[in-house]
Amino acid sequence: MQDVIRQSITAVSSVVLGKEEQIRLAVSCLLARGHLLIEDLPGMGKTTLAHALARVFSLDYRRVQFTSDMLPADILGVSIFNPQTREFEPKDGPVFTQLLLADEINRATPKTQGALLEAMEERQVTLDGLTRALPDPFFVVATQNPVTQSGTFPLPESQLDRFLMRLSLGYPSAEMELKLLAGSDRRQLAVNLKPVASGEQLQHAMAEVRKVRASRDLIDYIQRLLAYSRNGGLFVAGLSPRAGIGLLNASRAWALTGGRDYVIPEDVQVVLGPVAEHRLQSLAGGAAATATQKLLESVPVVRRQ
């Protein structure tokens, strides 16, 4: 199983160059059954990453480009009247897929965003009184332009809590940039990727994540991190219990991608940024990342008293 995971990561890395850590995090997020938010400027390979992930894990893949005139129905689907049968027939929206790439989610109006995010949370869609479950697994990889860009509706904090992780790819290194320029089109490469894991294998890996051991010392560490985020005076509001569970699951998945069946504090420290930063607002006013770093520095890994 660990081989499969490692191979998947390698495969995605062959398309998205020089971003091993982000890829491993993205895979961990998937394995922990979490939704992923990628925040970056346009053209940084967000779409490529999402597509590659879908290919490698042999997932159904759909991409929706969000715009400001988009309606909830454009994502969830509509009921269409069939004159022949004189009945309404549901016409599924793009949400009925295993991996949905929601591109530039912050271009849509809050109403449309809300519709998607609700579907993410409930893993089901209700159309005209008919509730239908979404496929399993169901992942949303949403991309978002940095909030400062004009013509956007930033996701409110309450919605952000629904994404397990937020990643940022960033510019490639000079070496990788050269490779990128020399190589062929990345998107095309992603489309041509061969699946590494079957759907069954993915399900199995996700089940493995839950079996990764978290010791009492480790859970205590996570608890102290959560407590400090609430009381430490670093953030406007501390991490929610949902975030706490997410942190533990993400750490488990990260440990598994590293080939371990138990979690060590380093796992927690690695995933804390992606899991927590988008949910927190620094009290001092600076970047949440700085405050999160401060959180890590303030909470002893090993209980002191």
Partner: peptide, 17 residues
Amino acid sequence: YEGVAYRANSANLNGMN
């Protein structure tokens, strides 16, 4: 250390310490 603190001392094993 990791064996004792993180591998063995599992929180799942109720109070097995």
